[in-house]
Design a protein around this nucleic acid. Structure first.
Lengths: 111, 111
DNA sequence: CATATATTTCTATTATTCTAGAAATATGAA
DNA sequence: TTCATATTTCTAGAATAATAGAAATATATG
């Protein structure tokens, strides 16, 4: 992942409404959600939601597929994982153990 | 992590200069870097760098400690890990295997 | 074709963030 | 105290992003 792609993805997620939408989709998994469903859960006018979904798509974090009149939105899990990997890449120069702020609190996640 | 904290962290990272700074600090590890060192590597005027470091600190991603005339900046690894955890939380409703876009390309990172 | 539903694009207004020069503050050294 | 270095705060103009109503487009059904 290049820095521009990472900035796009982070910018897309750096908004309360869009982050909530993205997390909904992450948790929904590969079967996704329709725009209407998201609009209801997010309590957002259609035009506003459409604007935010575009931002997420532009960044590569969300994909859409038409099913009849509805558009099913799904999270792009590999984009998400690439972003996470980009942020944590080569953490502490590769010495992951150094990231633990205190000895008792060992890092459980990847470092 | 609450959504507001996540949005703050993501907003702080959603800028090419700040993302580059943060990654420098992540890779530098717990010993950190001085403002001057970062300014040189990032090729950024002091005032601009200071503005961006403030944003990263405000978001909890960076901490500073004075050592004589210099201020040592370090990444906050637990904040970073919390953010990553927040993004990927309960992915696919807990069925992590579902995130793999294709059977042949298994997810190597946490899901 | 006419009508209904689902979603997007257009538009303009409002709000927020970025940038960097200049001045200010903090620390240390002579 | 005077000077040098390191960093921040102040400032204001320039750039970018958010919001949502209204109109447009896509698909389906009678």
């Amino acid at each position: 992942m290049k820095i521009n792609a990472a900035v796009s993805a982070l910018s897309a997620l750096a908004h309360e409404g869009r982050l909530a939408i993205f997390r909904m989709l992450v948790q929904a998994g590969p079967s996704g959600l329709t725009v209407g469903h998201i609009a209801k859960k997010a309590g957002m006018p259609g035009a506003t939601l459409s604007f935010h979904l575009s931002a997420l798509k532009q960044a590569g974090l969300v994909r859409a597929e038409r099913r009849s009149r509805e558009l099913i939105q799904t999270a792009d899990f590999s984009c998400m994982n690439d972003l996470v990997g980009y942020l944590t890449e080569n953490c502490c120069g590769g010495n992951a153990a150094a990231c633990a702020p205190a000895p008792k609190q060992l890092q459980k996640r990847r470092a």
